[in-house]
Write a protein that binds this DNA or RNA. Structure first.
Lengths: 249, 249
DNA sequence: CGAACCCTTGACAGAAATCAACTAAGGTGG
DNA sequence: CCACCTTAGTTGATTTCTGTCAAGGGTTCG
């Protein structure tokens, strides 16, 4: 860990409220590292050994089964992932790979668990992080089960806009294929859904830029709902949000 | 709370490891109640006020959006629900209704949060419960995204059998329509999937009884996977398992 | 400049939802 | 105890949605 980034790490949602001495103890054991794009950070099924927290860049969480693959989340700073596996000392349910160059804090699970037991403030922070994570996954599941492909895309675009400060124009944070996988559809279906939305309030401007031309029309289609898409106009962060990603609820 | 059930409550996964004095403090504020079948316990969108723990009976967690409705979970003893909303003091994401006569422990969120801050053992128990819950929802999402309707049903039946001690014959814990909704399909599709599985290892014996006639054939179809269907041969409990339900990971 | 790779588009196939009718089972009240 | 009514489940016909396969166009990067 570079001395310069210690304050940044200290201020992460997970560590912000913990006692100084707990942080100092924990800090002895964790370290930050840079990873190149496309680097495999962990594989589903492996026993939990280290908690990961993204300081910079972006990390893809994905999972495979029988040759099929799906995106579980894209984690951006200051998101953490696989906290649940660490707490339970259980195998990872997903694999993780850097999408771009990324800087990640690695915290050994054993030390983490030991501090949880000693510092109630930290334990509470962990519980809050986990709770936020549950709520995100539950909302994502509701999204998958209660909306069709086109509605999911419309809702995603509205949310993305909101996270960019209700901007009418914004850049998608991930490739189309990753977005498709996250939204539970094939790239082809995403492409067609995007096209059909061009008649309902959006315009594509280049490969990844989106302009919202008719917010009301889009909203009629998406039927945005705080209990699915997440709360309030002022997002805590940007990008796809998912399990283990952000404390936001 | 009846004096006789105090030991039972004390031994719940969430309370088992907490300090005596914390439990005593908390016990002043919680109470157990009986509810008739079909009783609405809470509604999505309402602010979190009480944690619910099921001592007896069964509770349906479901959610609505735009006239569509889907089952999120069926909670059976000794499962809890909406712990995450309580910890974050956020609105419920789902509604809850008793499926049958049920006995439920109600714990005011405020007191719960206050004890979390005071008792690290309890905070750890909460973190573990939440972690188990996350893992369940993540597995459920993987199930929805990586398997088709028939495979989801096949995997569900195998898991159900496993939870009944690898019994070849068992009774479904919920109505077909509820199961369909949980598995992310319509009752019609469930009915047809069930029928098509009769050529691949199962037999229906009456309305809700299932016999597994060819476990290997069923397994070839379902491709059971610990990272989706949950761990080991010895289940912690039975029935549908879901968000906020069981500590099992 | 060329080779990957990503995205799009079209044609088609398959999966699942919808609509509607029918059957069976459970509960109620006569 | 039986008839009726309600509700759950099944089945069939059909539509809609989504995935698959294949080809083409555009970008990016070496």
């Amino acid at each position: 860990m570079r001395p310069s980034e210690r304050p940044e790490i200290r201020d992460l949602p997970l560590f912000r409220t913990m006692r100084d001495d707990s942080f100092d103890t924990l800090a002895k054991d964790f370290f930050a590292r840079d990873f190149p794009p496309g680097f495999d950070l962990l594989r589903q099924g492996d026993p939990a050994r280290v908690l990961h927290i993204v300081l910079d860049g972006a990390v893809l969480l994905y999972t495979r089964h029988r040759g099929r693959e799906t995106t579980t989340a894209v984690v951006e700073p200051p998101g953490s992932f696989i906290l649940a596996a660490c707490i339970r000392d259980a195998p990872y349910l997903v694999s993780a790979r850097t999408l771009e160059r990324a800087r990640v804090v690695l915290v050994p699970c054993e030390q983490l668990r030991s501090i949880v037991r000693q510092d109630p403030d930290f334990a509470l922070a962990v519980a809050e992080e986990l709770s936020g994570c549950i709520r995100q996954v539950v909302r994502h599941t509701k999204n998958l089960k209660l909306r069709n492909a086109q509605e999911r895309l419309a809702a995603y675009l509205l949310r993305e806009s909101r996270l960019c400060g209700d901007a009418d124009r914004f850049i998608l944070p991930v490739e189309m294929r990753t977005l498709a996988s996250f939204l539970g559809m094939t790239p082809e279906t995403l492409s067609r859904s995007m096209r059909s939305l061009e008649a309902a309030g959006i315009a594509k401007e280049g490969a990844r830029a989106i302009r919202i031309t008719d917010r009301d029309a889009l909203a009629r289609l998406a039927a945005p709902d705080a209990l699915i898409d997440g709360p309030g106009p002022v997002g805590t962060s940007r990008g796809i949000d998912l399990p283990g990603v952000r404390a936001a609820s």
